[in-house]
Amino acid sequence: MTSRARLHGLWPALLVLTLVGCGTEHAVAGAEAPEGVADHAELEARATALQTRTDRVYVTEVPGYTLATQSVGVLGDDGFGSSYTDKHGHVIQLGVERADYSPADCGKKPVSDGSAGYTVCEREGERWYSETALGRAYARTKGDLVVTVSAELAAADRDTLRAAADAAHLADDAELDTVLPPLGQAPGSQPIERGDLPPEGDGAPDNHVGASG
Rank of each mutant, 00 (worst) to 15 (best):
S3T: 11
L15C: 08
L15Y: 02
V16Q: 02
H26R: 14
A31C: 09
E32N: 06
P34N: 02
D39R: 05
D39K: 04
H40D: 13
H40M: 14
A41S: 06
E42H: 05
L43D: 13
A45K: 12
L50H: 10
T54Y: 05
V59I: 12
A68F: 01
T69Y: 06
S71K: 00
V72T: 11
V72H: 07
G73E: 06
L75Q: 01
D77P: 00
D78S: 13
S83L: 10
T85Q: 11
H88D: 15
H88Q: 15
V91E: 00
L94Q: 02
E97M: 07
D100S: 14
A116L: 05
A116S: 09
C121S: 14
C121G: 05
C121K: 02
R127N: 09
W128S: 10
W128E: 11
S130K: 03
T132S: 00
A137S: 01
Y138N: 00
A139S: 14
R140C: 04
T141V: 12
K142A: 15
L145S: 04
V147P: 07
V147E: 13
A156L: 10
D159I: 04
L161N: 03
A163C: 06
A165N: 06
A174H: 02
E175L: 07
D177T: 08
T178K: 13
T178M: 13
A186C: 08
P191F: 04
I192H: 03
D196C: 05
H208R: 15
